[in-house]
Amino acid sequence: MSIGKKVLLYMALTVSGLVMVFPILYAFLISFMQGGEVLQGSLWPESFSLANYFSAFERVPLLTYLWNSLVVSVLIMVGQLVLCSLAAFAFVFIEFKGREWIFYLFISTMMIPWEATMVPNFQTVQSLGWLNSYAGLTIPFFAMAFGTFLLRQQFKTIPKELYEASQIAGISKLRFFTGVVLPVAKTTITTLAIYSFLTAWNMYLWPLLVTNNEANRTVQIGLKQMQTQEIASDWGVVMAGVVMVILPTLILLFAGQKRLQEGLTQGALK
C-alpha cells in the first residue's frame, strides 16, 4: 500500500472512529458543564469542574448502587460460568439417551424473548420471597442457553482421545473437567465471562421489577432516577452519573480486549 493510500485510510478510520465515539465523548464533556451550557449547545465546557460529580453522589446513593451492581454482575457471571460450563461438559463428554434432543430443546429457549417470561419469573421470585434481595436479582439468570451453546461448541473441539486417555488413566470426570477442559477452553471462558458481566451490569428492567428500595437497586436504575428526579433536567449531573457507570465497563473492555478478540476470532484459523 502506498503512503498516500495509507494516509487516506487512516483518516477515514479516524473520522469514523470519532463519529462512533462522539456520544460517549460528548457525555463526558457535558459532565463538566455548568447549568445552561448544554442547552446553549456548546461542545466544550467553559471550565472543567467536578461539581456535577459531587452532586451526583449527593442526590442518589450512587455508591450503594455501584456496589449492588458489582455484586449482582459478579454473582451472575460466576453462576453462569459454573452452570454453563458444567452443562456444556455434560452435553459433550457424557453420553446419555436423548442428549442431542435435550440440547436442541435447551437451545430453542434462545428463541423466546426474555420479556415474555418476565411475568412468570417475577411471580416465582415473589413467591420465593426473593424480592429486594441479591438472590432475586441474580439466580434467574444463572442458566443461559447461549453460554452453554458457546462452551459446547468450544468443548467439542477438544479431541475425544483426551477424555479417553484420562479414562484409561483413571482420572475422574470432575478432575478431567477442571484439569483439562477448563484450561484448554480458557479463552472462550474469558470471553463468556466478560460478556455475561457486561450484560448483567447493563440490566435495567429486571432490577426495576424486583427491587423497590434504595438498598438493593442497581446503578442503571439510579441513572434513570437521576434523570426523572430533575424535572429541569440538570444534564451535567446525569452525565456525570453516566460516566461513573460506564467506567467499569470500559475498564473491563480495555483489560480484556485481547482475550475478547482471541475468543471471538478463534476457530477462524486452523
Binding site: 482421545e161 483439562v180 480458557k186
Partner: peptide, 10 residues
C-alpha cells in the same frame, strides 16, 4: 497410545 497422541496441550 492414540493415533493423535492425545497429549494435553496446556
Amino acid at each position: 497410545v492414540f493415533q493423535n497422541y492425545a497429549l494435553y496441550p496446556h
